[in-house]
């Protein structure tokens, strides 16, 4: 188990749990960040934050602070 915010570029995994509260969590869900979804950390912005992930076939950006709520199962292959 690892938080999405701790991923390195190119790392892949499956979402296990999405924490956080209220609006942020709701937004994450609406954008498809739900348990079971496959995620790849594509890149970090030039200043190190926010992050860009590939999820459900599209590119989503979110801050490290928001990625901290997302718990991941790392895929190793």
């Amino acid at each position: 188990m690892k938080k999405l915010s701790e991923f390195v570029i190119g790392e892949k995994g499956t979402i296990v749990k999405v924490g956080g509260e209220g609006r942020i969590k709701r937004r994450l869900f609406d954008m498809g960040v739900t348990p079971g979804a496959q995620v790849m950390l594509r890149k970090k912005a030039p200043l190190g934050d926010p992050l860009e992930i590939t999820i459900r076939g599209y590119e989503l950006t979110l801050r490290k602070a928001e990625a901290e709520f997302v718990e991941m199962e790392v895929k190793t292959w």
Partner: peptide, 9 residues
């Protein structure tokens, strides 16, 4: 404000 946004193709 949170920053959760789609990056379109």
């Amino acid at each position: 404000a949170p920053f959760i946004m789609e990056l379109p193709v």
